[in-house]
Each structure stands twice: as C-alpha cells, then as structure tokens.
Design a protein around this nucleic acid. Structure first.
Lengths: 185, 185
DNA sequence: CTCTGTGAAATTTTTCACAGCG
DNA sequence: CGCTGTGAAAAATTTCACAGAG
C-alpha cells in the first residue's frame, strides 16, 4: 500500500505519512509501497499492543458492570483480571468473565495476577480512598472514571475520563453551526 | 490575576496565555492582570456553556444506566431529557431523573423536548439502526459509546468514545517506564 | 512601576519536490 | 517506472521583548 493510499484513507498529506513512518524505521519498498502486515506489527509493538495487560476494576455499580462486560478491552489486549467492590452484597456476582471480590482482597489480587492498572468506577466520594488502596496494593497506573480529582504519589500515572467532555465538543460544533457569528477562529 | 500566574497554574508560557486570551477580545488591565470572573464568563460563552442542551440516551443497559445517573452531565449543562430502549421490559423503569420510554417514541421526544444530541449506549450490533433512527428523528449530533462505526449523513456530527483508548495511553506510559529502549521519540 | 497586547524572532510542524532504490 | 525517504521550503505555532496603558 502506498503512502498516497494511506493518506487518502486517513485524510492527511502523503508526505506526512512517509515522514512519520520513517521515524519508526525503514519499512517501505521504493516503487512498491508499505507492507501493511509488517506496518501493523511494528505499530502494535510500539504502542505496547503485543503485551497483554491485567487490569482490576474497582466498583461494581452500573459503570463497573458496563466496563466488566466491555468487549473492546480484550480486543486491545486488556484483561479484566479482577473486579472488586466494598459491598458484601455484590461479592460473588458474575462480572463478565470473573466474579466480584471484596475490596479488601486487593493486595493479594494485584500481587498474584501481576496487575499494573486499576480502574476506578465508584462514586466520587469513594475515589480518593480507592486510589490510596490501589497505590498501596502496588498498582502503577489508574484510570479514573469517578467525577473527582485524586491525589497519588508522583510515580503513579493517572488519567481522568470525563464523559462530559465529549458532549462538550459536540455542543461546541452545534453552537458553531447555529450561530456562526460566535466563532473564535 | 496575571498571565504569569495563569501560566504557572497551567504549565504553559505566559506569552502564550496572553496571545491566546487576546484572541477572545481585550480583557486584561495593563499593570493589573485579568479579571477571573469576566474571563470565566467569556470562556463559558464561547464554549457554549451558557446554554443548556437536551440529550437523549438510547439503550438502558449497564452503560445507559450509568450515563443516566452521571452527575457530571448536569454540571456542564447537559440535561438527560429522555432515555429510550427497545426492550418493553425496561420501559417505565426509573433512569435517573426520567423514566425509560420505548425507542419508537423517539421522534416525538426529540421534537417536543428540542433534543439535538443523542447518545448511543447499545450493543454494537444495534448501533447503526439506532443511529438511523436518531437521524430520522431529527437529532443533529451523536455520541457513540458502542464499539462500532456508524454511518450518518454529512450534516450530522458523530463522536465515537472508545473506552480502550484511555487504557492504551496508560499502558504506553507503563511500557515506556519499563523498557526505556523501545521509545520512539 | 507592573503587566498587557502584539510585532518580530525563534522554533516546530507540515508540505514540497526530487534523488535514487527496487 | 513508481514510490520511498529526506533535504529544503513553506507554513504554523510559540516565545521573546518591548511600547505603552493604567
């Protein structure tokens, strides 16, 4: 496949495709183009997609349940190794491929399953305590769905997912269409 | 507040803060700085935060339920005006502030509540049909949580939310820490 | 005297255009 | 030949630095 085709498919300039790909090494064959399979493999490698990652979901409410059953995770190499909740009434329920465990089991789970990523799917008020527990259990990164800012040691990476932001972007476009005078640039 | 302070708080260059803000009009007072209240108001106005937006959530599974009860939406001016599902067993259940309505009611709901944004929270296989129905009902933008690509007329904006992408970013960082040799640049 | 708003300079990113490989 | 890889040119973004407002 030529850089021209890749450019067309992605909507960018062909020279940019070539320059960007050249940073990943030499792949293309002059006069022919790129080997798609090889390209995919190299990109997967760089993005860390060749390795599977174990994750733990904390909180088995609606969001936690939705995340436990989310097909997209497995497709990208993320395995839900455990789901925990502090409500004894929820312990033992089926959460996708695993059963819900009690929050107190976190340290053992993280250690035995070699979990490095924790997902917070609790109400905002519980977020900080959960974060502390995750860090204490040895988790290295946290994906925070709770609408709350959490504090963690410097060595731990956190990403906050704000579901409103996407809506925000949509409404910004709508506004621009409805009131073209209000645009900024 | 001075551009210097804003720069420190946000971690960018002070000149950039000034240049960017200057595009929104003249706000600062020379020798003094910016009026934070006025600044917030102008930015809200530009981002469309002064207007409330009605949204409809399609699909009352785990994700739909989680979204219906999500506090963050109201905080940013999004009102869940309706939740619909095609399962008669779910119709009538309480979904946050509203009750679940049948999918067939979509056109009336969109018209009477002046809904411009639809959220797809269904399984992937239903996404395209739901998208068609939303468009048919008069929705102008769609936020798609289903792990499926949907086709819509040119005039309709779509954003796809991929929950895996955030995990992807985290694992990329983890990988970079663990194997600093694999980095690209 | 302080801090904005902004030309001009510096830097970064993107695109062009072409030598040269297969 | 066709298409990559890449210097060089062009464009865009960011930063500097300072005139001048308050």
């Amino acid at each position: 496949m030529s850089s021209e085709s890749l450019a067309e498919l992605t909507g960018v300039n062909a020279a940019k495709v070539r320059k960007d790909l050249s940073h990943l090494g030499t792949f293309g064959t002059r006069g022919v183009g790129y080997d798609v399979r090889q390209l995919l493999h190299r990109i997967s490698q760089i993005l860390g997609l060749t390795k599977d990652w174990e994750v733990v979901i904390v909180g088995f409410g609606n969001l936690g349940a939705a995340l436990s059953g989310y097909r997209g995770f497995a497709e990208r190499g993320f395995r839900v190794a455990a789901v925990v909740d502090n409500d004894p009434g929820k312990v033992g329920r089926k959460a996708g491929p695993v059963k819900v465990t009690h929050l107190d089991e976190l340290p053992e789970l993280v250690a035995t399953s070699d979990i490095k990523i924790g997902i917070i799917a609790t109400p905002a008020r519980a977020a900080q305590e959960v974060a502390d527990r995750l860090v204490g259990a040895g988790v290295r990164s946290i994906l925070n769905f709770a609408p709350a800012v959490i504090n963690v040691p410097e060595a731990v990476w956190v990403r906050k997912v704000d579901l409103s932001t996407e809506l925000q972007i949509l409404s910004f476009h709508l506004q621009a269409v409805e009131d073209p005078s209000g645009r900024v640039s």
